[in-house]
């Protein structure tokens, strides 16, 4: 893309910057896919959390950092992804395939919910997404078959814990890879320019021919699917849902905000870096209880203010 002629101008395109990233990314993912042959399951199964954290951070960044939709209600789709495993498992679908089937259903649900959420703007949109997530939780706990308010375990899963961990590991990694590839593809296409235009100035975007509603809806649905898949992974790893309050918790949104802001909002690598930082902090400081929580929030808020000021 460097060979654009008029006036011999070289134009920096996302495209060029990304080639190196793509090669490195592909190699890393390949190595991670082979890791279970080298490391014991106890090690690799810990990485599952990192994979779904990066997935969550990446889709939230797509939503907020690129399309300007600051949602604090992605836990709606995390919860639906987790519960979707039960729904399709009970219908006889293998739980791993169930994650993929559920993601399609969640895409449809997110599409429908977008019509509610998009009636609101800015801060009201953020609060609206949270309200929607609460409403979704309220609906889910009405079903006795889903454990009502108590949570539930997967009925029919792979007995062998080693194989089970392996499958979950590969699924989580596959979902992560698919999320990153879809994000790169989306941002590299002309849709990437459209989304960032919308984020920076909706009125001007419309005046240039960009269908703002359509572009936002596509991202909203993709972000819902991504969060749903992450939720399915959580459910598979825990062999169920401990409680609806946990899987529909707004703290998932807080973590997503934290990861994306600490790594760099509106960049492709930012959420990956942020998720790794969060994962490491979580791993090493989780025994410290209160201290850990305070330090994390202090760190998060100072970083937030830096980001908002610089944007």
């Amino acid at each position: 893309m460097a060979e654009l002629v008029p006036g011999h101008v070289r134009v920096d395109r996302l495209r060029r910057r990304m080639i190196a990233t793509q090669i490195v990314g592909a190699v890393v993912i390949l190595l991670l896919a082979l890791a279970p042959y080298v490391f014991v399951p106890a090690v690799t199964s810990q990485w599952i959390k990192l994979f779904y954290l990066i997935t969550l951070a990446t889709v939230w960044n797509l939503l907020a950092g690129y399309a300007g939709m600051v949602s604090v209600g992605q836990q709606a789709y995390i919860g639906l992804g987790a519960y979707g495993i039960f729904v399709f498992n009970d219908l006889g679908v293998n739980p791993y395939a169930g994650a993929l089937v559920a993601s399609v259903a969640i895409g449809v649900i997110a599409f429908g919910l977008s019509f509610v959420a998009f009636r609101l703007r800015g801060g009201y949109f953020a609060i609206g997404t949270w309200v929607i997530a609460e409403a979704v939780r309220q609906v889910v706990v009405r079903f006795d078959s889903l454990g009502a308010g108590r949570g539930r375990s997967i009925a029919d899963y792979t007995e062998d814990p080693v194989m089970r961990n392996l499958f979950t590991y590969w699924l989580a990694l596959g979902i992560l890879a698919a999320t990153l590839i879809a994000t790169l593809f989306l941002l590299r296409s002309r849709m990437g320019v459209a989304l960032q235009s919308i984020r920076d100035n909706e009125v001007a975007a419309r005046a240039l021919g960009i269908h703002v509603g359509r572009a936002k809806r596509i991202v909203f649905v993709i972000a819902g699917i991504g969060a749903g898949l992450a939720g399915s992974v959580i459910s598979l790893q825990q062999l169920g849902v401990q409680s609806p309050n946990q899987i529909f918790s707004v703290s998932f949104s807080a973590f997503m905000v934290f990861m994306v802001l600490i790594g760099g909002i509106g960049t492709i690598e930012g959420p990956i870096v942020g998720a790794v930082v969060y994962y490491v902090m979580d791993l090493y400081f989780s025994q410290m209880g209160l201290w850990y929580t305070s330090a994390r929030w202090a760190c998060g808020t100072s970083r937030c203010s830096v980001c908002w000021r610089s944007s």
């Binding site: 320019v193 960032q196 235009s197 920076d200 001007a204 240039l208 509106g266």
Partner: peptide, 12 residues
Amino acid sequence: FTHLTVFENALA
């Protein structure tokens, strides 16, 4: 579109 380059603005 302040976060896009001048070129990307026109590209939109």
